[in-house]
């Protein structure tokens, strides 16, 4: 009995140090996860950016800039045509219809089905291809 207690007593400091080394000493500290798409991007700034939303806007503005460049230098008429809906659309119109339609596809899926949103992503891509091809 006594020998057991001595045995445990001699081990205690060791386990305490061991625990301190592996984790308990780090409780309350931020662990450094590295880059994450969903963490705050600039925590001290007011717009609450995350890399994911930043990428979203980069994509939208990039698309607008790309279409603008095409319409100004390559196709001054914006590839204007009358599509299957009877609407006369240019490249910019088609981009707008694609983006607005995609927003509705995602919202409808979230409302009627729910997450995850991989399937509506493919529907939205298909919608975009359809719009640029036919409308």
């Amino acid at each position: 009995m006594m020998r057991h207690l001595i045995w445990i007593a001699t081990l205690l400091p060791g386990t305490a140090f061991g625990q301190a080394a592996t984790g308990w000493g780090n409780v309350g500290k931020q662990d450094d996860k590295g880059f994450s798409w969903t963490d705050p991007l600039w925590p001290d700034f007011w717009m609450a950016w995350t890399p994911a939303t930043f990428a979203l806007f980069c994509g939208i503005f990039g698309a607008i800039a790309f279409v603008a460049v095409l319409e100004v230098w390559k196709y001054p008429d914006g590839l204007e045509r009358k599509g299957i809906l009877g609407l006369t659309t240019t490249l910019g119109d088609r981009l707008f219809i694609t983006l607005l339609g995609s927003a509705y596809i995602f919202l409808a899926w979230l409302g009627f089905v729910g997450q995850p949103i991989w399937i509506p992503l493919f529907i939205a891509i298909a919608w975009g291809i359809f719009v640029f091809w036919k409308i």
Partner: peptide, 15 residues
């Protein structure tokens, strides 16, 4: 000014 990621939960909840 502290934010936590929530994904698209709010959209689902509101809709």
């Amino acid at each position: 000014n502290v934010f936590f990621w929530q994904g698209l939960d709010w959209f689902e909840q509101i809709l």
